[in-house]
Design a protein around this nucleic acid. Structure first.
Lengths: 230, 230
DNA sequence: CCAAAAGTGTTCATCGTACACCCATGT
DNA sequence: ACATGGGTGTACGATGAACACTTTTGG
């Protein structure tokens, strides 16, 4: 195909904003790492890597996430493609950003540590290299939008969770406190949860009932327009 | 920077979904063209082109739109990046898709014709090459979402327009009919329009008042959460 | 005078929001 | 007994949705 050969080629990278929820601190966190290569060696950055010839971009994003966390089968979504001329001072790189939602405790903490990665609260983000800070803000906005229209909050919690835990997560995502009566009422009215016959007793004397995500009415809900504004 | 050289490089293209509104037919249209080169010569496709070394991706998207329509300063937004292995059978191409909203009559119709391009109603889209049909559906969905939260409908109409015209546009975007009383009330309550002392008399005996987009309360509105669900 | 599109108000149901007290239990 | 977090109900206002008739004027 001689036509294509007239055109220039580019390095294509994938950078991932990996969100996790810390149930103890009730904080939303991002997985950051210290670069162990030039340029900007020693500075904080997102996890990233280069696209290979034989893989789709989605596949590359999953591969890179797996390298760092040991996880596959994770909620991941393409965020935006960053293609400014000088975004990476080392070379012209086109970067396709993804964001992922994972359960911190489900990840391979050893593997994470080996890569020099750390879970950092979004409220205390250091400055990141290049345009990575902009990537994180964009990802956070998109996460907030998604959380209103799709039941993705569950991706950040264990299989069984309590309603106060879920509320804490949404409060962390939206960065504001919610009314627990309204939260509970709206949530349960969606018929997305199954109550288990088991209580979580760590965080209170009374104990809170565990629930599980049960996507029975999920399809209906999507059609009628899921609305999780709280 | 020897590190980067270890990695493969890729052709990066930009494809644009160009939306226009046909006031006469009250239809939303897309600008399509017949490819005059291989592969898939003679088939319908979106407007596209290759990224150059010295330009940002946004710049490339604008350049390509300008080539076809003669327009600059147009509403454009990045849509998604398509990077499947075999999406273009000719070669591995990463395509960053954009969508644009333009006023059909503001475009250079001669230029459009020269490129073999045609305005096609979205209700009568032919099959497009590669994954271009998927690009158009994704763009349409995003346009529908945007139209609910940002006053972008105005991008598709002339500077002065009537409320029935605007309603027709939204009906075309959402592909459903709207109640004109509710539409008018909600619209005017936003204080985004300025009524002109002039009537449009083409489409009715009585005539409809012209309005102009007047973004006085626009900032307020964005903060309080623009909601244009109708 | 008639056709055709513009313009105008009200009612009802739904939903979001604000708000305060009792419950269960481990210490 | 008491401290701690879990769990519950109600009232009000705002907003979306449904709905029918009058107005203007060119032909």
């Amino acid at each position: 195909m001689p036509y294509y050969q007239e055109h220039e080629k580019f390095h294509v990278a994938v950078d991932s904003i990996i969100f996790g929820y810390d149930e103890d601190g009730r904080e939303l966190k991002v997985l950051l790492l210290k670069r162990n290569f030039q340029p900007a060696k020693g500075e904080w950055s997102l996890m990233g890597g280069f696209l290979k010839n034989n893989e789709a971009i989605d596949t590359a994003a999953k591969r890179i996430l797996h390298q760092l966390t040991g996880l596959s089968d994770v909620y991941m979504e393409q965020l935006y493609t960053f293609g400014e001329l000088d975004r990476d001072p080392g070379a012209r790189i086109i970067s396709v950003a993804y964001f992922a939602l994972i359960r911190i405790n489900a990840s391979d903490l050893e593997l994470v540590k080996t890569h020099g990665a750390t879970w950092v609260p979004i409220s205390a983000m250091p400055q990141l290299i290049f345009d990575h800070s902009a990537m994180v803000s964009r990802a956070l906005k998109k996460l907030q939008v998604r959380a209103r229209t799709q039941p993705i909050g569950f991706e950040l919690l264990p299989d069984k969770f309590t309603i106060p835990q879920l509320q804490g997560l949404y409060e962390a995502i939206y960065n504001k406190t919610l009314d627990k009566r309204n939260f509970r009422r709206k949530l349960l009215s969606m018929n997305l949860l199954e109550k288990l016959e088991e209580k979580e007793k760590e965080s209170s004397r009374k104990g809170a009932w565990y629930y599980r995500f049960e996507p029975r009415n999920y399809e209906d809900l999507l059609n009628r327009g899921f609305n999780f504004e709280l």
